[in-house]
Amino acid sequence: MTANDDLERRLADFYAIEAPRRAPDWVLTSTLATVDTTRQRRAAIALPSRFRHVNVYAKAAAAIVAVVAVAAIGVVLLRPGSTSGVGQVPTTRPSPSILPSLPPEGGSVAPGTHTLGPGFPVMITFDVPAGWGGCSASPVEQSVCAQMVGGAPGPGVGFAIIDNVVADPCGTALKSPPVGPSVDDLVAAISGLDRFQATAPVDITLDGYQGKSFVVTAPAGTSCELRTWATADRTNGVSPGEVNLVRIYDVAGARVMVAGAYHPDSGGTDGRALVEQVLDSVHIAA
């Protein structure tokens, strides 16, 4: 046995003897009492890994970001019958409870109307076009995207809760103090991203929820890794020239972002039409 072996054995013996066997009972009791009055963090949505370093695929069609949000967990905020989006006509929708949801691990999804996967704090329904699949799916991360085209990611639509915006798109630091709590605050911060182009925000309503719609285009000629907005978990990255059709809704005080991302250079595919098709099918049930 080497000297180190002996020392390692002695150390293991030391810990085995020194470590307390039990925590005082009140530690657990007190903890659970605190838990009873502690709310869990919102299920903020982190974008799928394919979007995290999307700049690595510069010039490739990008995808994503976006949506959804929080609300009181009982969720009886259903507001049926409202008009949706810009110029949309209210339609009769099937009950969300009988719709298929995104598969837990992503992957192929049958075309048609789906809900976000289980665990999401807000019930959202949307139509998935043929050839699209779940590109991220967990209780805190939901998005769908077109299949890869020539090795490049296709357009995509994501659902997330956005907490803040980067101070500089070429850096990682977020704004401090953080962006204010309203939809307008968030829209203004995103629209003000240095060297990004943003259209004027338009008022929209979806299922009774007020929001803003605008388009954000990342600068095309840049060598830095571009970042935009951040969930509670991570900061979103975009590729140069990537376009995001952003819709942000106020759902019970929470800002729900639904964003469709595409790249104008994605050969032959009308990315914008694809993401708009999905975006226009989105409904917030609660």
């Binding site: 470590a19 530690v27 657990l28 903890t31 869990q40 509670a232 978990d233």
Partner: peptide, 30 residues
């Protein structure tokens, strides 16, 4: 036990344990 070994103080370990479990509850959705 881990907290006690790291901090080498019973009261601080109790605090750390409670804090850790409450954080775990709060952040579990992530």
């Amino acid at each position: 036990a881990i907290a006690r070994l790291i901090l080498r103080d019973a009261e601080l370990a109790e605090d750390a344990t409670q804090d850790a479990l409450v954080r775990a509850w709060r952040d579990l959705p992530t």
